[in-house]
């Protein structure tokens, strides 16, 4: 008897991003408002981070609501229907209800039928991680189109009394549709992690630890404190600039693209100083437009790359069909970089 052989799934030869969309919360928080919480100055915040204002979500602008809004725009640009979506991947670290995955509600609200839907946690590299998974699903034959969403409500995890982070974080959602292509549209993903530096960016405490503390009203024990995000600026800066410049170069080399062929450089919007130093370390030609969305959006972790991509396309700084180098990096530490064709 011959051994039965499994028929393999067959997918598209290549994939690309077909559409991108973003959602920015209505409420603008200028630096002047941040100065009501921390002892600092507008100039200090701008010179340390490049941030002039950020958006913070209101009660109605939930993780799911912002995602649905952003995804709707990406689906429209892609020119597909929600029923054609065969996978929904949501990257977030700030959806505070763990179960079920928020991706299922988003898929249902968009009308994606029974598409597989799941959340991933890769902080500021989350969009790149999602893109890599989507690329594999499309080329592997397990989905025709995949919706990748990066969404955060980091305001829920911001300690307004922490001078080093209170001004950094923002909220928002960015979405992209990945689907089949006749030409290569997503280069090899250069991704990885370094758990030895897990402590340099992290949540201050686990939820069970926070809840285990008696509150101050009882007058006993430690005060209960809502967990927040904290980071150790100097080690993060060193890693994000010099180690990530190497990763970005590897992504270019793997794609067979040189920096002067890029139509856009879209790094995670962590801090304008990181972006500026990375440009120097990468020796990026001055002719390549660079995403600087952070000035008006703050650091929105997984949402920052698709939000910045949408802005560059809408403003005309970058154009459909251009090659863009994207790189995400953050808590983990984790990173992901690739050259992509802009939708």
């Amino acid at each position: 008897m011959t051994k039965p052989q499994i028929r393999p799934a067959t997918g598209a030869q290549y994939s690309r991003i077909h559409g991108v969309g973003g959602y920015r919360p209505v409420r603008v928080i200028p630096n002047s408002e941040v100065l009501e919480w921390i002892d600092s100055s507008d100039e200090w915040i701008r010179t340390r981070s490049g941030i002039a204002e950020r958006r913070w979500a209101g009660p109605e602008e939930s993780v799911a609501e912002m995602s649905v809004q952003a995804a709707g725009k990406a689906i429209a640009q892609a020119g597909i229907t929600p029923e054609q979506i065969g996978g929904v991947i949501v990257s977030t670290v700030s959806h505070l209800k763990q179960t079920p995955a928020i991706a299922t509600e988003i898929a249902q609200r968009l009308g994606c039928g029974t598409a597989p839907a799941f959340d991933i946690s890769a902080a500021c590299a989350g969009f790149g991680y999602g893109l890599g998974l989507a690329d594999g699903m499309v080329r592997g034959g397990n989905a025709e189109y995949v919706l990748v969403i990066g969404v955060e409500r980091l305001s829920d995890l911001t300690d307004k009394s922490d001078r080093s982070t209170a001004f950094i974080f923002g909220d928002g959602a960015g979405a992209a549709i990945v689907g089949p292509s006749n030409t290569p549209g997503i280069g090899k993903l250069i991704w990885g992690s370094d758990g030895s530096q897990a402590d340099v960016i992290s949540q201050t405490q686990a939820w069970d630890t926070a809840f285990a503390k008696p509150d101050a009203i009882n007058g006993q024990g430690e005060e209960q404190k809502w967990p927040a995000l904290r980071m150790d600026g100097q080690p993060v800066f060193r890693w994000a600039v010099w180690e990530m410049a190497k990763v970005a170069q590897q992504a270019l080399d793997a794609a067979g693209i040189t920096a002067d062929q890029l139509g856009a450089f879209i790094p995670h919007q962590a801090n304008m100083r990181i972006t500026d130093a990375m440009i120097k370390a990468l020796k990026l030609p001055a002719s390549v437009p660079v995403a600087r969305d952070i000035a008006e959006t703050g650091n929105t972790s997984a949402a920052s790359i698709p939000l910045a991509m949408e802005r560059m396309l809408e403003s005309g700084e970058a154009h459909s069909g251009d090659l863009a180098l994207i790189i995400g990096f953050g808590a983990g530490l984790v990173y992901a970089a690739a050259v992509v064709t802009l939708p």
Binding site: R48, Q234, P235, F237, R238, V241
Partner: peptide, 27 residues
């Protein structure tokens, strides 16, 4: 020289003088 510029100075010094200056030492 602010804390982030200090990191840039340290990295440039490491390269120029062939020395390792760990993050813990910078402060």
């Amino acid at each position: 020289v602010d804390s982030l510029s200090m990191v840039e100075v340290v990295v440039a010094a490491e390269e120029r003088f062939d020395v390792k200056i760990p993050d813990d030492e910078v402060k």
